[in-house]
Design a protein around this nucleic acid. Structure first.
Length: 260
DNA sequence: GCGACAG
DNA sequence: ATCTTGTCGC
C-alpha cells in the first residue's frame, strides 16, 4: 500500500472526523480551517494528478466514487479506480465534504500510484468558512489539493474576458457578480479564488486553493489540464467513470433485491 | 426575516 | 448530483 492510500484509510477510520450532525460538522470546519496551508506549486514539476468525483443515484442511497490518475503533461491515463458505497451524510451546501469525502478517501485507498496533486470537484478556500472539500481533503491527507468548481458558492467576482486563459479574482463576500473584482483585490479584499476561462466563450470554472498549493499555480495547472474542454480532464474522466460504475452498481442492487 | 446555496 | 430530447454552434 502506498503511504497516501494508508493515510486515506486511517483518516476514514477516525470516528472523530465524521460527525453526523450539521452543527458538529460546522464546528469541525471552524476548528480545522486554520490548518490549511498555502505554498508555491511548481506546476512544471507536477507529474501525476488525480481527478476525484462521486456519482449519486436518484432514489437510492447508492453511490460510486472514482479517482483517475493522469500524466499532467501528456494527459495519458495512468490509473483508474472506483468504489461503491451508500450515502452517509445529506447534501448541505457548505457541508459538501462530509458527504463527498468518505467515498473519495475510499477510492484513494485503492490507488497504487501516488499523484503529486489531487483535483477536487468543488472549492477549497472559496468557502464561507474557508474550508471547502478541497481544503478538507488536503488537510486530512496533508497533500496538495486544488479545487475546481463549476458554479459559485461564495465570493464576489467579475466576469473574465472571452479568451481561454482569461481570469478574474474572487474576493471574500456573499456570492455576487461585481464590476471589477480586481480593483477590490487591489484595495485589500481577501482573494479566495479565481474565475478562469478554460474555453473561449464558454462559462468559466472557479479555481481555489485546497491545500499546499498557491492560487496562481492552481489556476495554471487547471488551465493546462483543460486543453479541450471546460472541466479539467482528470475530473471529466473521473466524472464519467464514477457515473458508469454507479449505474452498474444500481443494477447489481436491483438484481440482489429481486433475488431475495 | 429573507435570500443564497459547491455536488 | 440526477432525469432527459432535441437542438444550436464550431
Amino acid at each position: 500500500m502506498t503511504q497516501l492510500a494508508e493515510l486515506a484509510a486511517r483518516v476514514l477510520d477516525d470516528p472523530e472526523g465524521w460527525p453526523q450532525d450539521p452543527k458538529e460538522a460546522i464546528a469541525l470546519q471552524r476548528r480545522m480551517a486554520d490548518r490549511v496551508h498555502e505554498e508555491p506549486l511548481d506546476v512544471d514539476g507536477v507529474r501525476l494528478v488525480a481527478g476525484l468525483d462521486v456519482s449519486y443515484a436518484k432514489d437510492d442511497p447508492a453511490l460510486a466514487a472514482a479517482a483517475v490518475v493522469m500524466d499532467a503533461r501528456t494527459l495519458e491515463v495512468v490509473e483508474r479506480v472506483t468504489v461503491t458505497a451508500e450515502v452517509t451524510f445529506p447534501y448541505i451546501s457548505g457541508l459538501f465534504s462530509f458527504r463527498e469525502l468518505p467515498p473519495v478517501l475510499s477510492a484513494l485507498t485503492e490507488l497504487t500510484t501516488t499523484p503529486d496533486v489531487l483535483v477536487c470537484d468543488g472549492f477549497g478556500l472559496a468557502h464561507p468558512r474557508r474550508f471547502g472539500v478541497a481544503s478538507h481533503l488536503g488537510v486530512l491527507l496533508d497533500h496538495p489539493v486544488v479545487g475546481s468548481a463549476k458554479s459559485v458558492l461564495h465570493g464576489r467576482h467579475s466576469v473574465p474576458g472571452d479568451e481561454r486563459g482569461s481570469w478574474t479574482p474572487m474576493v471574500s463576500g456573499r456570492s455576487e457578480v461585481v464590476e471589477d473584482s480586481a480593483r477590490l483585490a487591489d484595495e485589500g479584499a481577501e482573494v479566495i479564488g479565481r474565475v478562469l476561462r478554460t474555453r473561449e466563450r464558454v462559462k468559466p470554472v472557479y479555481v481555489s486553493v485546497g491545500h499546499r498549493v498557491d492560487l496562481a499555480g492552481a489556476a495554471d495547472l487547471v488551465l493546462r489540464l483543460s486543453p479541450k474542454y471546460r472541466v479539467p480532464e482528470p475530473i471529466r474522466r473521473a466524472d464519467r467513470l464514477c457515473g458508469e460504475r454507479r449505474k452498474e452498481y444500481e443494477q447489481e442492487r436491483a438484481r440482489d433485491r429481486s433475488a431475495e
